[in-house]
Write a protein that binds this DNA or RNA. Structure first.
Lengths: 199, 199, 199, 199
DNA sequence: CATGAATGAGCGTTCATTCAT
DNA sequence: CATGAATGAACGCTCATTCAT
């Protein structure tokens, strides 16, 4: 057992603890309803300390989101060769499921933020810079498989993932996640093997 | 119709104006970030007047949501015979698209609310009472078409709708709504016509 | 049975009803905590009507107080000959007791008002004009009975009455009103019959 | 003592300053008519600071009342032997006078509060717990002096004190406090020395 | 006169942020 | 860096008062 694996609350650094407790609170009560004092208390630090690590409540939110997004991108994109194979495509879906389960709290927060235009605009630009290269690769994947409109195809694909995702995070105990992911995989298996029609 | 009844701004009654402006603001800035004063000003009424029509900010939110949900249910469920035919099923999808476009603001609000557990709990129970009978009918539809797990099937179906919905409302200018709806329709056409495999 | 004796709520005029219900509410919840709307509702009239009879909430309060004070003065001072006899003096005490019981609500209000300097100043002057002549007569009573400082004597006498009064109105069920009034009467009987010492 | 500890206005701690200024305002304008902002300003602190020391305006009021009551009980009851002698009884009266003068503001507030049933109920129970043991002792005093109804006797005694008290605090410049206290003392001297009649 | 919808000043309270220690 | 007392802008909400009907 390495030193880092010692249980969370024991010796994580303060910044990480603050991120952790703010994620827990934001996802549970919402961003506005969570106070800096609660976050600090949950992180086991003083209220003022939060401001030693983050400029403001809003920048804490941003940091939280980017941290997880970057982590996710990293995690998904294990192969950096710039091309997505069919095998990798289905791999991503399966990985998504695991990631979804692990990052439920984050996703709740993410969807509640992303649905607020005023807030969304702030994130949008920066997020896009991170995600764009990966999107391009995914577009190419659909393009190379002969889809007439790979951009639309990609957005539809993400819509399906979002649909599953949002339903799972909101109701993790009842939503049939396995069933849904299976359906999605079967769907794209059919679509990709198929000769032409749906493209 | 007397002269006084043609008063200023289109003579919509105040309650309706308040609902309208609060929907606009809630969907744009979020529930918490919108203030009663803004809502009142946008509705062209005094701050205190809001409280002549709604008990509190929260009850205004609730009213807003239930009003639209009930309208939607009514609108979707034109045929009250208790059974959904295949034709009606595809009809619902097509109607959904129109409703989505018309109720974009509402949906933004809805998704931002539904992803906040604390708030969600308040709505959940009451909403469920309204929606349950319709869900049962939809379940029966899948059951009668030979699906092994109609409940899961239904949730998957709604996940797909949610996926399209949430992507459209967040980015209406770029999301390929028609493409996505077409894909969805084709998918279910395949699934329903098919002899067995996917069920 | 005369026409006026028909039960209160039946055909009292509106002004009287408003005075009645405001007294009930003011004494129960306090002046500030009672709203015009409550008063109006309790009086069975519209909110706006209160303003047809009284200029403001404050003037309603004033009217309430002066009305009862004048009534009380009238009631106490049945004999207008300008002189208080010993018999009349004890009569007043006994009458006070009855009045106390009848006007408990008023007295609660009165004491809560009189203990607020800012408010009290408003009343003080006007009240004094009403009460002064009667006070003079009472002073003379003590003076004629040989008290060295009739003004102080009078104030002490009223302090005793106030003491009994405030204790009774605050706790009418437990305060031994009869006992207290008896003590007071005996005390003054002793004082007045006595030859000299206490004066 | 460091230099910083001699800060501005006498370095009374903030909580004490807030209590002081709220007492001044409550007694002058009444509880409801005094605002937190005024209190804060008078105490030389920010509005928000009041809430660092007191949960709410109401709890500030309660703190104010209990603080003084407890102090008073302590002050009056110097001898804790559980028995009141005749000498101590008269001592209490004389002490009361001094306390009255010192705590005029408090008493104005106290009487204005105690005459509002709704508010009174909140205090009543807690106050009673503090005062009860002392009342019992006073009851015993009257009992041991042969009074037929010591409970009533005690209440009458407090009524007399209240009468003097309320008249003094409302009109401290004109009310003949010394005269009244003398009268009261003489009265009880007579009553206690006397053989029997009045008991 | 009677009414109650409309109003906005003003309240108690919250909370992100600052800063002296 | 760490802290939490101090702050005041800003909020939701109340209610005395007005006024069109």
């Amino acid at each position: 057992m390495t030193d880092q694996s010692v249980n969370s609350s024991m010796r994580k650094n303060k910044k990480a603890k603050i991120l952790e407790s703010s994620l827990a609170l934001f996802s549970q009560k919402g961003y506005h309803a969570s106070t800096i004092e609660e976050i600090a208390k949950a992180a086991g630090v003083g209220k003022g300390s939060v401001y030693n690590y983050f400029e403001s409540k809003e920048s804490l939110l941003k940091a939280l989101i980017f941290e997880t997004i970057l982590e996710a991108v990293e995690w998904m994109d294990s192969d950096h060769d710039g091309v997505i194979t069919e095998q990798e495509f289905f791999q991503v879906i399966r990985k998504s499921k695991k990631w979804l389960i692990k990052n439920r709290k984050f996703l709740i927060l993410y969807y509640s933020i992303v649905t607020q235009p005023k807030v969304n605009i702030i994130l949008e630009k920066e997020l896009w810079q991170i995600l764009e290269p990966h999107m391009k690769k995914a577009e190419d994947f659909f393009r190379h498989h002969g889809f007439a409109d790979p951009v639309a195809e990609l957005r539809f694909f993400f819509a399906m993932l979002d649909g599953i995702s949002v339903n799972y995070v909101v109701d993790p105990n009842n939503f049939p996640l396995d069933h849904a992911v299976d359906r999605l995989i079967k769907y794209y298996e059919g679509l990709l093997q198929n000769d032409a029609p749906n493209r």
